[in-house]
């Protein structure tokens, strides 16, 4: 299955586009998505500032709510990656 990940903050380094399409095994959850992101980052990007992103990021559902690691993803689902925040 495939999901669309809307990129914010430092995660924008992962793509020129606003979203990143990610292939996942069926019935994957957020924990699996973190594992896949870790793999993508280690294979494609040699940037130390991105290494911790899969561990420190939160994820928002389409309802803009934080979803936890056990949340089951659906095919074509659109979710947001929320790297550590720091406005003001």
């Amino acid at each position: 299955m495939e999901i669309q990940l809307k990129l914010y903050g430092s995660s924008k380094i992962l793509s020129e586009k606003e979203t990143l399409d990610i292939q996942l095994p069926n019935n994957s959850d957020i924990k699996k998505l973190r594992d896949i992101l870790t793999k993508i980052i280690s294979e494609k990007y040699s940037r130390s500032d991105l290494e911790n992103l899969p561990k420190t990021a939160a994820f928002f559902s389409e309802k803009d709510e934080v979803i936890d690691d056990s949340y089951k993803l659906s095919n074509k689902e659109y979710i947001s990656i929320i790297p550590p925040i720091g406005g003001g």
């Binding site: 380094i13 500032d49 420190t56 990021a57 939160a58 925040i85 720091g86």
Partner: peptide
């Protein structure tokens, strides 16, 4: 240019 580090919104029980 550099994105600044910040505060994680990941649920605390998972970290």
């Amino acid at each position: 240019e550099e994105w600044l580090p910040g505060h994680s919104l990941r649920p605390k029980k998972e970290v």
